[in-house]
């Protein structure tokens, strides 16, 4: 146990940093995708709603490991060899981030759609009746209320996505699980290594949950 911590500790910590970096990129773009697709799915325009539904169902219907292989190996092959354009080279970090962003983004879109729809329609009507344009009503009245109800689900999705980074060990990204495999291969101490890695994930996730609690409390509507 001590040997793993003293000898391989720095390596595992660095791998944890890589895991966090990957998750951060993935979540950042997932939020953007989720917001765009989520809002598209509540618009009155049927074409927008249909596009949003196709995106969500397509991505939700593909296992993430398949998506990872498809993006990391498949897309450059399509671009360079099949289409013959050439010059495309995705790093594991890039492919991994895209993969996480798409996967998490699809679920975020659903969370955002449900959040917006949970806000009473009267709120938008009141805003419109005062002469505010649709997008201003969305921005000033509906979204702030929607986001508050969405926070628990968003944090939950963040946690799932953070753990899903481990799937991207299959495309060789040097994140925590990949690093742990190397440590086990070198030391044969599989119980100790995996227990430590598990604890590391747990630590990050507890931290995230605590931050969510604080955020939720600060967003309560009260006169102060």
């Amino acid at each position: 146990m001590d040997k793993i911590i003293t000898v391989y500790g720095p390596l595992l910590l660095r791998a944890m940093g890589q895991t966090l970096l990957l998750a951060l990129y993935g979540l950042f773009f997932a939020c953007i995708i989720g917001l765009i697709v989520g809002i598209m799915s509540v618009l009155r325009n049927k074409v927008c709603r249909a596009i949003a539904a196709v995106i969500v169902n397509l991505i939700r219907g593909i296992p993430m490991i398949v998506l990872a292989y498809l993006i990391y190996f498949g897309v450059p092959y399509l671009w360079n060899t099949i289409l013959g354009i050439g010059g495309m080279n995705l790093s594991a970090l890039q492919a991994g981030s895209i993969c996480l962003a798409l996967n998490c983004g699809a679920y975020m879109a659903e969370i955002i759609r449900a959040g917006i729809q949970s806000v009473d329609a009267g709120q938008m009507e009141a805003a419109r009746s005062l002469g505010l344009p649709y997008w201003r009503g969305m921005q000033r009245v509906v979204m702030p209320q929607a986001i508050r109800t969405m926070i628990p689900s968003i944090i939950n999705q963040f946690i799932i996505t953070l753990k899903d980074t481990s799937i991207l060990s299959v495309i060789g990204f040097p994140e925590l699980v990949n690093a742990a495999k190397n440590v086990v291969a070198a030391t044969f101490m599989s119980f100790q290594t995996w227990a430590i890695v598990g604890a590391m994930y747990l630590f990050i996730i507890l931290l995230l949950q605590w931050a969510a609690k604080v955020l939720e409390r600060r967003l309560k509507y009260e006169s102060r």
């Binding site: 009473d120 009267g122 709120q123 009507e125 009141a126 805003a127 009746s129 005062l130 000033r140 009245v141 702030p144 209320q145 508050r148 509507y221």
Partner: peptide, 13 residues
């Protein structure tokens, strides 16, 4: 044209 609703619809946020 101001409007007043049955369920008030004050902005909760």
């Amino acid at each position: 044209v101001g409007m007043v609703f049955q369920h008030f619809n004050l902005f909760h946020n």
